Amino acid sequence: MNLLIQQRIEFPMSSNGYSFHLACRQWELLDKGVHKHIFNFDKDIMSLDENERVTSRGSLNVHHCDDTNMVISFTRGPFLFVFNFNPEVPYQLYRVGVDEAGEYHLS
């Protein structure tokens, strides 16, 4: 017998009358699997923005968008961001072009 357990997080919104009573906050999900990785990613991005003010450095410039491999790269200010959104394929030698030659550090 297969038992499917649905895990969801529902926030107060118009469909539930903005009720905190109906909002299911399952904070223990932050300690597991994909939820943990997304939470850590979000913390890292917020920390980068706090230190480098990335979001206030003008609009982003998309360099590369690969729908098949689920990879996108863009610049914002002096930063080049390359994101792999493919949950099944880690890329170690993925190449993207840049506008300016120079040294780029992987973080």
Rank of each mutant, 00 (worst) to 15 (best):
G17W: 05
V98K: 03
G97S: 14
L22R: 09
F79M: 05
I72M: 10
H35C: 10
F39L: 00
H105A: 09
Q7K: 09
V98A: 08
Q92D: 11
K43P: 00
N86Q: 07
I9S: 00
S15L: 11
S73K: 03
Y18S: 00
A101E: 13
N40V: 12
K43E: 04
L3H: 13
S15W: 13
E10V: 12
S19R: 00
K43F: 05
L48K: 06
I9L: 01
N16P: 01
E103D: 13
P90E: 12
Q7W: 08
P90S: 07
Q7V: 04
Y104Q: 02
F85R: 00
A23R: 10
P87M: 09
D42Q: 06
V89E: 14
P12S: 09
H37T: 09
L22K: 13
E28F: 13
S15I: 10
S59E: 14
H37M: 10
P78R: 09
S56Q: 15
K43Y: 00
S47Q: 12
R25I: 14
F20M: 06
R53K: 15
Q92G: 15
H63Y: 09
P12R: 04
V62G: 01
D99I: 07
I38Y: 10
T55C: 11
I45F: 12
L30K: 03
R95M: 05
Y91E: 02
G17F: 03
G33N: 09
T75A: 01
N84A: 06
Y104F: 12
S19C: 00
L106Q: 04
H35T: 01
F79L: 11
Q7E: 10
D44L: 15
L29N: 05
D42F: 11
Q92N: 14
R57D: 05
N84G: 08
I72A: 04
S59Q: 09
E88F: 14
M1L: 05
I38N: 04
Y91R: 06
F39Y: 10
K36C: 08
F41I: 03
N2L: 13
E88K: 12
G77S: 10
R76V: 11
L93M: 12
R8F: 13
R95S: 12
I45Q: 06
D99P: 06
S56A: 15
K43N: 06
F81Y: 09
L3Q: 09
G58W: 07
V82Q: 02
A23S: 15
H35N: 05
D31N: 10
C24A: 04
